[in-house]
Nucleic acid binder design. Structure first.
Lengths: 341, 341
DNA sequence: CATTGGCACTCGCTGGAGCGGAGTGCCAGA
DNA sequence: TCTGGCACTCCGCTCCAGCGAGTGCCAATG
């Protein structure tokens, strides 16, 4: 009974603090939320919560502020799952439906996510490794120059140019094209690469592959295992950092630096990929001390949520339910668009 | 004679103010620079310069600060052209030489520029409109599905898929391919588009073009006139905003907002394209009042500096000679790389 | 035993006073 | 035309007092 009220108090404090950005005191609390008890009672509860590490005081005789542990409890047990408002849905739909290609989808998603949450938004490009091969095209630009085009299910298109030693007959080209497509089309990248490699490492006894085949396959496999493009991330809504309030140096600066470091960003997002739910990292829970005053709300998208991740980064003092709802909604919509495509 | 000294005083004030970020007084000035006159003399000069609008006082009895007009004079007439240091050259070279494709070149350029100037760097993607067509490829993925690949001199590759009403014979495809390449290859985008259009709008009397030809040409022309990709910009070094010092709201916030608005960015950079020299916009000289406390140093790159622009954005109180040197150096190096390519 | 009202206490914030110092403008003299 | 001297301005800092929000503790109550 008292335990229930304590949790209610914690929830109320988190909500008020997020809204007002000011330490919240016992009196204000009983007024804003209609808890049918006196401020003194609340004070006892608050003292207990502080004892357990869920609350902290900036200084003696100020109101209470949630600790990271407090936010964690709030996120895990107290926040009511906010359904996405229909206005939000419409915003996402109208924003994303106009997208013309993959680049566009990603950029629009960042924008809409930043706008909805009023935080910094981050979207990772669909990773190569979970895409399947839709088609491979081999084109002779000149008799000694081939253009390889690799079309993936995520909408990504990779192309490579190769120079040949000798000329290649059109008939051989057609044969090579069909063999390659037979091996790769429809397969997940990793398996496609393996199947292609099998073409140039035949069982003993079969005829050795031609030099052209070797170089084409090598180039394709190289393109498939080129994880550089896996690392692409798009950031948006940095202007929202302006509302970060005080302590520019301790909060905003390290965050700006992190946003420039794609590696860090990917690591922050990475935890969320494929988890099937919205992941929340609060304050110093991650390995980056500099980001102790920021939280990350992220989730995967695409089939099985495993294609790549997207999310937002903001102060620990953020609207978690709202952010989580927005992140999830955008991720779902993106998955759907990529799927239809 | 006095006129010369006055300009020397202005130059000294700009340099000191940029270095110290504090209003500079007459006494400090004679000490740091070995002007062989007394502080009182300097004060007279400063009063005159203020009268003419080159200097301002934050308040009575504080040191002087350059006005936008003062910076303008400094940039136009007083700054000695700083040759790029060999260390800088090496940094640029090692940074950019590792680039593997166009995306990579652009991203690396942003980073190196941000690093050299310690400001926010902005690089625009090579514009379609100044590229020439290197090659057009038409591939039948299936008998009724064509893949069009448009390869441009800037390294950009655009591809489009089209569905045909009926099937297309291989021989017809080859003929179409060679006609299209004959018309477009080597031409600047605009002329290539015109030449292609001529193919489907023949003089009266000639045979009417086939439906396939029409749809291929239409798609190619569409891809060529798709200026969406002209508008791509990459921003880097936002972490340098942290050194902006005070007045977060009046300086950093509008700048962050501007950086999110590609349109604004492009306009800022746009003035510089093709001018053949480094352009400097100081404070409120542009149309954006919100950016009154920021300056833009930009230049074009590519052949005739007309391909696209790059530059930096920073506080009006910035190291103009150094920034200009860095911007020019990076632009030259980029031009060279794109040219070799 | 949880809850409540009362009460003394803590401590940050605000605003005004006072002071030091950097810098200026002006003037008379070289 | 330049220079030294001098009075003046005004910003920024510190100190101090008063205020108020908020707390912790305690004794009383159902």
């Amino acid at each position: 009974m008292q335990e229930d009220r304590r949790l209610a108090v914690l929830r109320a404090i988190v909500e008020d603090y997020v809204a007002t950005e000011e330490p919240v005191g016992s009196k204000a609390l009983v007024e804003r939320h209609h808890l049918n008890v006196s401020p003194a009672t609340i004070r006892n509860d608050m003292a207990a919560l502080e004892e357990e590490g869920y609350l902290a005081q900036p200084h003696t005789s100020a109101g209470r502020v949630p600790t990271d542990k407090g936010y964690r409890l709030f996120v895990d047990r107290l926040s009511t799952v906010k359904p996405t408002s229909s206005a939000e849905r419409r915003a996402i739909a109208t924003f994303l439906d106009g997208a013309v290609d993959l680049d566009d989808v990603v950029h629009r998603s960042v924008r809409v996510l930043a706008q909805l949450t009023r935080q910094v938004a981050v979207v990772q490009y669909p990773s190569l490794s979970h895409s399947t091969v839709r088609h491979v095209e081999i084109v002779a630009l000149t008799p000694t120059r081939l253009l390889l085009v690799l079309i993936l299910s995520s909408g990504r298109v990779e192309q490579r140019l190769i120079e040949l030693e000798g000329e290649l007959a059109e008939a051989d080209l057609a044969a090579l094209r069909s063999r390659v497509n037979l091996a790769a089309t429809g397969e997940v990248i990793a398996e496609a690469a393996a199947a292609l490699n099998a073409l140039i490492n035949p069982e003993p006894g079969s005829p050795a592959p031609s030099a052209v085949t070797v170089s084409v396959v090598d180039t394709l496999v190289d393109a498939m295992s080129d994880h550089r493009s896996d690392e692409r991330v798009v950031v948006g809504g940095t202007a929202n950092l302006a509302r970060f309030g005080d302590n520019f140096d301790t909060s905003v600066r390290p965050l700006l630096e992190a946003l420039e470091e794609q590696v860090v960003l990917l690591k922050l997002l990475g935890e969320a990929t494929g988890s099937g739910a919205v992941t929340v990292r609060i304050g110093a829970e991650g390995p980056y001390q500099e980001l102790a005053s920021t939280s990350v709300v992220a989730t995967g998208y695409g089939p099985d949520d495993a294609l790549a991740s997207l999310g937002i980064v903001g102060p620990t003092r953020m609207d978690y339910p709202g952010s989580m709802a927005a992140v999830r909604a955008v991720a779902r919509y993106m998955s759907r668009i990529l799927d239809e495509n």
